Amino acid sequence: MAQGRGEDIVSEFLDQNPQLVNWVESLRGHCETNKQWEARREFILRNMETFPTIQPGSPSPSLDRLLSLSMVWANHVFLGCRYPQPVMDKVNEMAEGITVKEAPERKTRDEIMGKTKRPAVSAVGADYLVKKTKPNDTDLKDPVKSVGHPAASTLKSGPSPGAPAEHQPFFNRLYKAVAWKLVSVGGYGPNLEHFEIFRSCVESCKASLSCVFVPLKDIPDLPSGRTQREGQVCELRCHTVYMGTGYGRDECAARAMASKEALKVFQGQKVTVKVCRRRFRGRDVEDLVLLDEQPRSQVFPPALSYPFQGDQ
């Protein structure tokens, strides 16, 4: 628990403000241990003055934000959860002066294995995706509409040289929107509504996602031992920038998996738009890809769509 002088400060503060005792206790989570709650309670009380609009006993956005930040800090200290670096910097600054006795020490899987690389983002695998596809290009605000492939002769060599710099400011804003959204829902995890979270963040930045669906049965060159041929593959883009690919039993499941993969990119300290080589319809093309700072092999699933088209 928060030890020594920290406990004395909290007790002294509550003795001087008895009207806060019942209210602050009502903020305790049902599953929190005494150690976790006493540390998080100290975090809340220490930082209340930085949220002057908080009125004890009355719900407010400021209170929700303070409670979210307190949970982020407690989840990091006691459960080993990781959050985007700007969020971690914020909660660590707010927790300055709080001492937690016998806090658990945790390592990530990569730290335990002595690795820093992350597997290539693909729910189907680079070898499963294709050279010949017939995608449905979708703006998520509209129903899925079928569109044909352009002729190969109309494909450009790729995005303009200045495209990454042009798109970077938007994705810097999106990074901040995703970071705070994940704080509000308790952090990145497998049980989130990944698509809804991602879509709301993109729309808050005055943009929209687009996705391409390809039936798995229409994808040739699957490994001979693979018996599963039902389902959909989904590719997500925003402002023509590729962000993730996912596989699922139907379009909704594939879209959710692609969103989950896309959100992983936002777990680092920043995101960067870069020009990368990808396969599209049997040939190498230059594509805009959103990346984090994790070192990894530059292996991407083949593109299901290619937005850089026009007369050569």
Score class of each variant (00 low, 15 high):
Ala179Asn: 04
Ala123Arg: 03
Asp64Arg: 06
Asn172Trp: 05
Ser60His: 13
Thr99Cys: 04
Arg278Gly: 05
Glu7Arg: 01
Ala103Thr: 02
Leu20Arg: 02
Cys205Arg: 01
Cys211Asn: 09
Leu216Arg: 10
Arg255Lys: 14
Glu196Ala: 14
Val72Leu: 03
Leu14Arg: 00
Val183Asn: 00
Glu251Ile: 06
Lys264Met: 14
Gly80Leu: 03
Tyr188Gln: 02
Asn22Gly: 08
His194Glu: 10
Val72Tyr: 00
Ala163Ser: 07
His194Ala: 10
Pro104Val: 08
Ala163Cys: 08
Val289Gly: 05
Gly225Lys: 15
Glu286Arg: 09
Arg279Gly: 15
Asn136Glu: 15
Cys81Pro: 02
Pro59Lys: 06
Gly225Met: 15
Phe280His: 11
Ala177Asp: 11
Cys205Thr: 04
His30Met: 05
Gln19Pro: 10
Lys101Asp: 08
Cys205Trp: 00
Asp284Phe: 10
Val214Pro: 02
Trp73Gly: 02
Asn17Val: 01
Val144Cys: 14
Val144Pro: 12
Ala39Thr: 06
Ala39Asp: 06
Ser68Arg: 05
Val212Glu: 07
Gly310Ala: 13
Ser160Glu: 13
Ser68Thr: 02
Gly114Ala: 05
Gly4Ile: 01
Gly187Glu: 02
Gln269Asn: 12
Met88Ala: 08
Arg118Trp: 09
Gly6Ile: 03
Asn17Glu: 04
Asn92Gln: 07
Pro143Ile: 14
His149Phe: 14
Leu222Cys: 07
Leu304Thr: 02
Glu293Arg: 15
Pro135Lys: 13
His76Lys: 09
Val147Glu: 15
Arg5Met: 04
Thr99Glu: 01
Pro164Met: 12
Asn34Thr: 10
Lys270Ile: 01
Val241Lys: 05
Pro104Ser: 02
Glu96Val: 04
Asn75Trp: 04
Ser208Arg: 09
Ser259Lys: 05
Ser62Glu: 13
Leu288Met: 04
Lys134Met: 03
Ala253Glu: 14
Gly6Asn: 15
Val212Leu: 09
Arg46Lys: 06
Ala303Val: 03
Thr53Trp: 04
Cys276Trp: 07
Asn47Lys: 03
Leu140Thr: 14
Glu230Asn: 10
Asn47Gln: 02
